[in-house]
Design a protein around this nucleic acid. Sequence first.
DNA 1: GCCGTTTTCGGCCCGACTGTTTTCAGTCG
Length: 570
Amino acid sequence: MDKRDVASILNDIGMILELKGENPFRARAYYNGARAIERLDVDLTTMIEEGTLGDVDGIGKTLEDNITELVTTGSLEYYEELKSSFPPTLFDLLSIPGLGPKRVKSLYENLNITNIGELEYACMENRLLDLPGFGQKMQENILKGIENLKVYRDKYLYIEAYEKAQAIVDKLRSHTDTIDVDIAGSLRRCKEVVSDVDIVLSADKSEGIMDLFVSLSLVEEVIARGETKTSVRLKNGMMVDLRVVKPYEYPYALNHFTGSKEHNTLMRHIAKMRGLKINEYGVFNTKDGHLFSCRDEKDIYAIFDMEYIPPELRENRGEIEAAKSYKLPKLVSQSDVKGLIHIHSIYSDGVNTIEELAEYARSLGYNYIGVSDHSKSAYYANGLTEEDIYRQIREIESINSRYDDFEILKGIEADILKDGSIDYDDNILSMFDFVIASIHSNFTMTKDEMTMRILKALDNPYVTILGHPTGRLLLSREGYEVDIEKILKKASEKDIAIEINANPYRLDLDWRWCKIAKDMGVKFVISPDAHDLKSFEYVSLGVNIARKGWLEKEDILNCSEIWEVDKGGI
DNA sequence: GCCGTTTTCGGCCCGACTGTTTTCAGTCG
């Protein structure tokens, strides 16, 4: 049991305590304990052995005992006891926006609602109207929330699907009969959200491979099993299709099952015009059935006098035209990224010190990081006061003086306030190397109001980057209504970069806008929005999105060897 | 449940928003 598991259980305990209506500060003590554990940089087992756990701020006698029990025995009796006081499905209600512990408790105790299905039914029967604290509007919102959950069900974030798929591919690759194996489908195209996983594998015989596939520990049930195709549902609910093809068929199958459907349709059309036929088994001459032999996908596109189209671009958004005239972009890659911008430190809601962040980035080979904590209005995230900023800048300068091959940039993620102004005055803003302006409050404005608000923020001469431009959270929250086109145009005029926020839940700006923005002359930063060291990895997800959006390294500011952005202001 | 004392009990993070109320509770970030 590692730190993350422990923290997650402490959080659960806090939540159940709230549900039970216990002293809210007791619940908070567990939340605080979880945070304290997450930010520990020493091994938990070591701390327990040395008896130093109780010295940690926020961990008292009770939490120390509980954590010790968790780590040494793998479970906690108190937690199991708490969990058993409610039906397990009751916790699902908390994922509906507007429902917190208090309301869920009331629904359970007054209407005996124990799961989302029962809640939906109760709403239909108007049974929430008479409940204290509920009303018509609340009931409508709950129904809307349930509707959204249904839409999002059976959809998975790229990162979750990718990790599962990669684990499966690794296992399949280890089978002696496997010759080639790859992820295909929307996951290979790096879509931000996927509904299932396709894996293509080449082998001369499939039986042993299928046996291995259905016996993987990730697999919950086998939906269908055949010689060439087997479908399973994983324990997280995700469907995975495995297709086994003959080695010579592999490139065609990989190409076909990578899609997209629209890309394939156009390719088939082009083939037909040339008297050819393309499908998962090959590229054939329609007349005599002759198979064009291909070693890889590059060969397939070459048959049609096209350059190789990377999977990310296969969305029928002009890539086939561009490939015909050999004008595809030279897509940015992970190794082009030279520095990480938008990183939170312990000063606001990050868990690492500036020194730890810098050392880790340096060890990964980056040339610079841009520290950008939250601004003063972001109370929930411990936003920085002016005094904090002076202190932080002094610390950064002191650490920087020790490096000649690395730089820590002084930045801020400043809130765009309701009226479009930026959270600090010009004097403060002028001290930073870069200013990310982001919206974290007042999401429910009209589209016009929100657009005006952001446009005004972009007029601030100190702003250098617009952070997560739509505020969306994939599979959980729509972005705020905003006229993106106007925003991009203004950003282009004012030389303000647009963030591609690489957090797996954000991936915002959406890739569908990237090419449009690029054509307007907009520059980008790919940022991890990191709150800990682990999330530095997210930058690769941002690179995926940039690639999907046709971007090249020249379009991305943090692909420069050194940070060359003009300071804002005059 | 934790912490720090005015040392054994009282305070603990804030503000906006929404929908419920008729002065505020619950949720969210």
